[in-house]
Structure formats: C-alpha cells, structure tokens
C-alpha cells in the first residue's frame, strides 16, 4: 500500500475551520500511518450539497465539475472524500457529466480534462470504502498499537454514505464500519437505526421533529449497550451533539455517551497523539480506563 496516491477533497466541514476539522485531520493522520499519501485538491470549492441543486441544478453541476477538473489536473484517478454529502454530490456530478452528452460537450470546452481518458477512469472514493476494500484487514491490524479491548462501539452511518447508490456496501444495513471496529480490537454493537437519517439541515428549520427522530436513534443505541458512538458524517455528528444537549432530560438514552469520528478512534488505536486527532483528554481517559479494566479482568480470570 506504500506509495498509493489519491487526491483529497476535504469539503467545507472537514477543512481547516469547519466543525468536522478533526474528521479531516484524523483521516489524514490515519492514512499517513498506513502509508497512503493524499494531496489536497488546490483551491477546491463547496460541492453544493443537496441544497444548491434545488435552487439551480445546472450551476450545482458546475460547482462539482470544477472540483473534478482540478483533481484530474493532478493526474490522479481517485478522489478521496470524507463527508457523505460531498461524496454523494461529487458522484452525482460525475454520473451526470458521463451520461449527459450535451453537458459533457459544453464542459469539455471549459475544462480540457473532462474529455481526457483519465476522466472515464475517475472514481470518487469514500474513506470507509478505501480503508475496507483497498487497505484491508491485515494492514490495519498490523498498525494497531493499542487494541480497544472490551469497548462496545456502535457505528452511526447516517444516510448518504450508502444511499441512494450503495457503491460499496448495503444501502440499508452496511457493515464496513463494524468490520473496521473489530480490526482495531473493539466489540461492534449494532443499532437497527444505524442508517436512519438524522434530519440533516432540517435541524435548523424543523427542530422539534428532528429531535424526536434523533431521540429514537439515541435510545436504540442505549438499548444495545453502546459505550461509544462513532460517526462518519460531520452533519450527523453535529446533529447528535445538538440532540445530546437538548435531550438531556429524556429517559432511556445515554446523555454522556462520547460521540467521535471513526477515524479518530482508528487513530487512537494507532497511538497517534490525541491532539492531532482532536480527541479530548476526557474521552481519551475514558477509552484508556475501559481498556485497562478489560485487561485487568482478563488477568483475574487467567490467574
């Protein structure tokens, strides 16, 4: 895997000043530890998400195409993406430009690379897909320095990583993150609501309804005994945090449960400094304490 190159599209949330900046920094650190070199696309722009296209579909595609063209200019056939909204949006743009001849011809005049052989080979890769299907079990396991033994970790995928296209996993019941959790020594626990939508941007417009939805989600995680929740989407992450502050009075959910990005957890097991990963001291202590307890309990059994 050493020497593998991809271009990297951080998107607004996972970039330097975004709320998901540590999803970004931890992903970069983890990939570096695995020998993967990613190069940020220069002067990238917002992907337009699912919002821009409601106002102006054509311009939304143009936003996506500029990013794709900039990636192709780097002569790298794969773009690595973290944010599911960016992932969906770039994939949709790629599909549309590949199938809509009129649009493609128009864009070829603007960006030469759109007509190049590299364009037809281009793939947009989500980091989960890349870790599970390209890096693989052995390489991840070999890099683990601190096994997350005894930790009951539940993944929350949210919606748009696997939907509507389901590129690399089941659209409704994906298992990639559970596999990664077990590779780093954790014990995956699963909620049946792990791909239930968090409400996304509706948190700002229909807060009451969205909080009700997330309450159900958090309760389902408490029910299966999750001790840590890992996320793979900056918006899901933010919404779960908002819900935790608002639903603290409700019964049946764990209002203290730490919610971190799955890449932060991988980085922790790789012994990457927590400052680089953006894991707070409190969460790191909790992780360490739990691991120490499991190890001690096993010692007693064996002794």
């Amino acid at each position: 895997m050493i020497g593998r190159n991809l271009s990297y599209y951080p998107g607004c949330s996972c970039s330097k000043y975004g709320t998901g900046r540590y999803y970004g920094s931890s992903s970069i650190a983890v990939l570096k530890a695995l020998g993967v070199d990613i190069k940020e696309i220069e002067d990238w722009n917002c992907c337009g998400s699912n919002l821009y296209r409601v106002i102006d579909e054509k311009r939304a595609y143009l936003l996506g195409v500029r990013n794709i063209a900039k990636a192709l200019e780097m002569n790298l056939p794969e773009i690595l993406v973290l944010c599911p909204a960016c992932f969906l949006s770039l994939n949709r743009t790629l599909t549309e430009v590949s199938t809509n001849k009129e649009l493609k011809n128009e864009l070829k005049e603007k960006y030469n690379v759109i007509g190049s052989p590299l364009f037809s080979k281009l793939r947009i890769r989500h980091i989960i897909d890349f870790l599970v299907n390209d890096i693989g079990e052995e390489a991840v396991k070999n890099r683990v320095e601190k096994k997350l033994e005894g930790l009951k970790i539940a993944a929350y995928y949210g919606c748009q990583i696997t939907r509507p296209y389901g590129y690399f996993d089941d659209p409704e019941f994906p298992t990639s993150l559970e596999r990664i959790i077990s590779w780093i020594g954790g014990q995956p626990v699963e909620s049946s609501l792990k791909t239930k939508c968090c409400g996304g941007m509706l948190m700002l417009t229909n807060e009451k309804e969205v909080l009700n939805v997330i309450e159900k989600i958090l309760k389902s995680y408490a029910k299966v005994g999750a001790e840590f929740i890992v996320t793979a989407c900056p918006l899901c992450h933010l919404n779960l945090e908002i819900a935790k502050t608002r639903l603290s009075e409700k019964a049946g959910l764990d209002k203290d449960i730490p919610i971190i990005y799955f890449t932060q957890l991988i980085g922790f097991s790789f012994n990457i400094p927590i400052e680089e990963l953006g894991i707070s001291k409190a969460v790191a202590e909790r992780l360490d304490r739990k691991i120490a307890l499991t190890v001690a309990a096993r010692g007693e059994v064996n002794g």
Partner: peptide, 23 residues
C-alpha cells in the same frame, strides 16, 4: 417557508465565497 430561506442563505454564501462556514 423556512427551508427555502435556509437554502437561499446557503447559496448566497457559496456564491460569495465559494465555500461555507457552518457556524
């Protein structure tokens, strides 16, 4: 309606800066 207002605010940001800041 609220949601169209949110979308317009979003689009204004993208048009003005090319990127957004969630806060």
């Amino acid at each position: 309606l609220l949601y169209p207002k949110l979308m317009r605010t979003y689009v204004e940001y993208v048009d003005k800066y090319g990127r957004i800041s969630e806060p």
